[in-house]
Amino acid sequence: RPMNAFMVWARIHRPALAKANPAANNAEISVQLGLEWNKLSEEQKKPYYDEAQKIKE
């Protein structure tokens, strides 16, 4: 299954978030990633939607 825009973004940002929160488990990191993603504007998300579309094609 191809990655969606959030997954493209999260793949880039997960390592830094995990390093900054070494005690957090994957579920907690995923929740935090979701919160951070939701704070982004549509303009900030656009490159990730574009990349996800390329992956689908």
Rank of each mutant, 00 (worst) to 15 (best):
Ile12Gln: 08
Pro15Ser: 09
Pro2Phe: 14
Ala18Cys: 09
Lys39Arg: 10
Trp37Asp: 00
Ile55His: 08
Glu43Thr: 08
Glu36Thr: 10
Ile29Val: 05
Leu40Ala: 01
Ser30Thr: 13
Pro22Cys: 04
Trp37Glu: 00
Lys19Gln: 09
Asn38Leu: 12
Leu17Phe: 14
Glu51Thr: 09
Ala16Asn: 07
Asp50Met: 14
Pro22Trp: 03
Gln32Ala: 11
Ala10Thr: 04
Ala20Tyr: 04
Lys45His: 01
Lys54Tyr: 07
Glu36Gln: 11
Lys54Cys: 06
Arg1Asn: 11
Lys56Asn: 15
Ala5Ser: 02
Asn25Ile: 04
Gly34Thr: 15
Arg11Gly: 07
Glu43Met: 10
Lys54Asp: 05
Ile55Gly: 05
Glu42Cys: 14
Asn4Lys: 06
Glu57His: 11
Lys54Phe: 07
Phe6Asp: 00
Met3Arg: 07
Arg1Phe: 13
Arg11Asp: 11
Met7Pro: 02
Leu17Ala: 04
Ala27Cys: 12
Trp9Met: 01
Ala5Lys: 00
Lys54Ala: 10
Glu43Lys: 09
Lys39Val: 05
Gln44Lys: 07
Asn25Trp: 03
Ile55Cys: 07
Asn26Thr: 11
Asp50Phe: 10
Asn21Gly: 02
Ala16Val: 14
Leu33Arg: 00
Val31Tyr: 14
Met7Ser: 06
Gln53Val: 09
Lys56His: 13
Ala16His: 10
Arg11Ala: 14
Glu36Ala: 13
Lys46Gln: 12
Ala27Tyr: 14
Tyr48Val: 01
Pro15Gln: 10
Lys19Leu: 12
Lys45Phe: 01
Lys19Arg: 11
Trp37Leu: 00
Gln53Pro: 02
Tyr49Thr: 04
Asn25Cys: 05
Ser30Pro: 01
Gln44Asn: 05
Gln44Met: 07
His13Val: 09
Asn26Cys: 11
Glu28Tyr: 09
His13Pro: 00
Trp9Ser: 00
Pro15Trp: 10
Ala5Cys: 02
Arg14Leu: 08
Met3Phe: 12
Ala24Pro: 02
Glu51Cys: 14
Arg14Asp: 01
Ala5Asp: 01
Asn25Lys: 07
Asn38Glu: 11
Lys45Thr: 02
Ala27Lys: 14
Lys46Ser: 05
Gln53Met: 11
Ser30Asp: 14
Pro47Met: 06
Arg11Asn: 10
Ala18Val: 15
Gly34Val: 15
Ala52Ile: 07
Glu57Gly: 10
Asn38Ala: 14
Met7Thr: 07
Met3Pro: 12
Pro22Ile: 04
Glu28Asn: 04
Leu35Met: 10
Gln32Thr: 07
Ser30Met: 15
Lys45Tyr: 01
Gln53Ala: 14
Asn25Tyr: 03
Ser41Phe: 02
Leu35Cys: 05
Leu17Pro: 01
Leu40Pro: 01
Ser30Leu: 13
Ile55Pro: 04
Ile55Thr: 07
Ala23Asn: 14
Asp50Arg: 10
Pro2Gln: 13
Ser30Gly: 08
Ile12Arg: 08
Glu51His: 07
Ala52Leu: 08
Glu36Tyr: 08
Trp9Cys: 02
Asn38Trp: 08
Ser30Arg: 13
Ala18Lys: 15
Tyr48Leu: 01
Glu43His: 08
Glu28Lys: 04
Ala24Cys: 07
Glu51Phe: 13
Leu35His: 08
Ala20Gln: 10
Pro22Tyr: 03
Gln44Ile: 04
Ala27His: 14
Gln53Lys: 13
Arg14Met: 07
Trp37Met: 00
Asn26Ser: 12
Glu51Val: 11
Phe6Gln: 02
Pro22Phe: 02
Lys45Glu: 01
Trp37Ile: 00
Leu33Ser: 00
Ala24Met: 15
Pro47Gln: 05
Lys56Pro: 06
Arg11Val: 11
Glu42Thr: 11
Tyr49Phe: 11
Arg11His: 09
Ile29Ala: 01
Val31Lys: 14
Leu17Ser: 02
Glu51Gln: 11
Asn25Pro: 06
Lys45Ser: 01
Arg1Gly: 11
Leu40Val: 02
Asn4Phe: 09
Ala27Gly: 06
Gly34Glu: 15
Gly34Cys: 15
Tyr48Gly: 01
Gln53Asp: 11
Phe6Met: 03
Asp50Lys: 12
Glu57Asp: 12
Val8Lys: 03
Leu35Ala: 08
Gln32Pro: 00
Leu17Gln: 03
Ile29His: 02
Glu57Ser: 09
Glu42Gly: 05
Ala52Met: 05
Ala24Gln: 04
Leu40Met: 11
Pro15Met: 12
Ala5Tyr: 01
Arg14Val: 03
Asn4Leu: 14
Lys56Glu: 11
Ala10Pro: 00
Ser30Gln: 12
Asp50Trp: 09
Asn38Arg: 14
Met7Ile: 10
Ile29Tyr: 02
Pro47Leu: 04
Lys46Pro: 00
Val31Arg: 15
Ala52Gly: 03
Gly34Lys: 15
Lys56Trp: 15
Glu28Cys: 04
Arg11Pro: 02
Arg1Leu: 12
Gly34Gln: 15
Ile12His: 06
Ala5Arg: 01
Pro2Ile: 13
Ala10Phe: 06
Arg1His: 12
Ser30His: 12
Ala23Ser: 12
Ile12Leu: 10
Pro47Glu: 05
Ala16Asp: 05
Ile12Phe: 06
Lys46Thr: 05
Glu36Lys: 09
Ala10Val: 09
Ile12Trp: 05
Tyr49Lys: 06
Glu57Trp: 06
Trp9Gln: 00
Pro47Ser: 04
Pro22Ser: 04
Pro22Gln: 04
Asp50Ser: 07
Lys46Leu: 07
Gly34Asn: 13
Val31Trp: 13
Phe6Cys: 04
Pro2Val: 14
Met7Tyr: 12
Arg1Glu: 12
Asp50Glu: 12
Tyr49Leu: 05
Asn38Met: 13
Pro22Thr: 03
Ser30Asn: 14
Pro2Ser: 12
Lys45Val: 03
Asn21Val: 02
Arg1Met: 13
Ala23Asp: 13
Met3Ile: 14
Glu57Val: 10
Asp50Cys: 07
Ser30Phe: 14
Arg1Gln: 11
Leu33Ile: 03
Asp50Asn: 08
Val8Ser: 03
Ser30Cys: 15
Glu51Tyr: 13
Gln44Trp: 03
Leu33Met: 05
Ser41Val: 03
Ala5Gln: 01
Gln32Glu: 05
Arg11Lys: 13
Val31Met: 12
Ser41Cys: 03
Ala16Ser: 09
Asn21Pro: 01
Glu42Gln: 11
Glu43Arg: 10
Arg14Phe: 13
Gln53Thr: 08
Gln53Ile: 10
Asn25Thr: 15
Lys19Met: 11
Gln32Asp: 02
Glu36Met: 15
Glu36Gly: 04
Leu17Trp: 08
Ala10Leu: 08
Ile12Pro: 00
Met3Tyr: 13
Ala23Trp: 15
Tyr48Ala: 01
Met7Val: 06
Glu57Asn: 11
Trp37Lys: 00
Asn4Gln: 08
Asp50Thr: 08
Gln53His: 08
Tyr49Ser: 04
Pro15Phe: 08
Phe6Thr: 00
Asn26Leu: 10
Asn4Ser: 15
Lys19Tyr: 06
Glu36Trp: 13
Glu28Ile: 07
Trp9Thr: 00
Ala20Val: 06
Glu43Gln: 11
Gln44Gly: 05
Ala24Phe: 14
Ala52Ser: 05
Arg14Gln: 05
Tyr48His: 01
Ala23Tyr: 14
Asn4His: 08
Val8Ala: 05
Ala20Asp: 05
Leu17Tyr: 13
Asn26Pro: 13
Arg11Tyr: 12
Lys45Gly: 00
Lys19Pro: 01
Glu36Phe: 09
Ala10Arg: 03
Asn25Gly: 10
Asn25Glu: 04
Ala23Val: 06
Lys56Gly: 07
Lys46Ala: 10
Ala24Glu: 03
Leu40Phe: 03
Lys56Ser: 12
Leu33Cys: 05
Asn38Thr: 08
Ala16Ile: 15
Asn26Lys: 12
Pro47Thr: 06
Arg11Phe: 12
Ile12Gly: 03
Ala18Asp: 03
Met3Lys: 06
Ile55Val: 07
Ala52His: 03
Ala27Ser: 09
Lys54Gly: 06
Ala18Phe: 07
Pro47Gly: 03
Pro15Glu: 12
Lys19Cys: 07
Asn26Glu: 14
Pro15Val: 12
Val31Thr: 09
Ile12Asn: 04
Ser30Trp: 15
Lys19His: 07
Trp9Ala: 00
Asn38Lys: 13
Val8Arg: 06
Leu17Cys: 05
Val8Gly: 01
Asn25Phe: 03
Ala10Cys: 12
Lys45Ala: 02
